[in-house]
Design a binder for these strands. Structure first.
Lengths: 151, 151
DNA sequence: GAAGATGGACAGGAGGCCTGTCTAGCTGGA
DNA sequence: TCCAGCTAGACAGGCCTCCTGTCCATCTTC
């Protein structure tokens, strides 16, 4: 995060980090507004970390935590919240009596569907405004950038 | 690491939102590691919201809150934390006896300098790996995307 | 002046994340 | 076969960020 205390904070040059963050932030905000509109105000930003990583067959909390890169305690809390509100359910794992499998309920699937729909709309909107070619170039450049930062 | 029994998460193509978020997230992480290395472990992610929006002349908490898009109560807490650790100081506003101006101390300026240096390094690194032309194109496309989402 | 707006403080609370610890259940080697 | 050590998850306790609501002092406007 740079920040040039030159004149006023407002007229800083556009900073690459912010250019990356803003579309993501605004998109997330709109997605959660959409959830709320469709009757799922209980689904908050970090819960994407659960729903996003669920397998159809059900997934253990510890596996979810690993995928989402948070501790299993944190993940357990997110799951508990979603369970309280009926988005996921936990069933015993038949293969391991210590474990429980987290699975989306119908209500959870609904949220997932809303998210997919929203993302598709959003990408279509961006494509309409940037143009198909530039959108493809943007994605390609971002993919390369991600490979760079990940490497 | 992922020697997990078979199943991966739901099959997803690389998702545009994540492509935007990851470089930002990784960059932030590295920046805060840098802060810690240089003796400023107290500066945590949200404190960028303060430092980033400070004017040289000093800035009111309510203005900072507005710029950072959080409530003034939240901003007041961030400022208090930074003040406790000597990064900013609050002085009475000569123009309004209700108000106080938040200003960076020398220690705060040091953190700025570290951030600016880090951002410069990071951008240079990305440019080296993507190439100058592609980096410029990426920035340009991101600027257009930001205009689209902001509009 | 007085009414209303604004700057900021304080109280209380929620969510998300952490470390540490504990039990139940699994697994592999002697 | 049995036990040591590991793993899955629950529980306790704590920190940080952010929120709403309330209050007072001060400024602004009429």
């Amino acid at each position: 995060m740079s920040s040039l205390p030159e004149t006023t904070a407002r007229e800083r040059p556009r900073n690459l980090a912010l250019l990356l963050r803003e579309p993501f932030r605004i998109g997330s905000e709109q997605l959660h507004e959409r959830f709320a509109e469709r009757g799922h105000p209980e689904v908050r930003a970090p819960h994407g970390n659960v729903l996003q990583y669920l397998d159809d067959a059900g997934t253990r909390v510890s596996v979810l935590a690993q995928r989402a890169q948070i501790t299993k305690q944190s993940m357990a809390e997110l799951v508990a919240h979603l369970e309280r509100h009926g988005y996921v359910e936990r069933t015993p794992d038949p293969d391991d009596r210590r474990a429980k499998l987290v699975r989306a309920t119908a209500r959870g699937e609904e949220v997932y569907a809303i998210a997919r729909e929203f993302v598709a709309e959003m990408e279509a909107d961006w494509t309409r405004q940037l143009g198909k070619g530039d959108m493809r170039r943007l994605r390609e450049l971002l993919e390369r950038l991600n490979d760079v930062v990940a490497g």
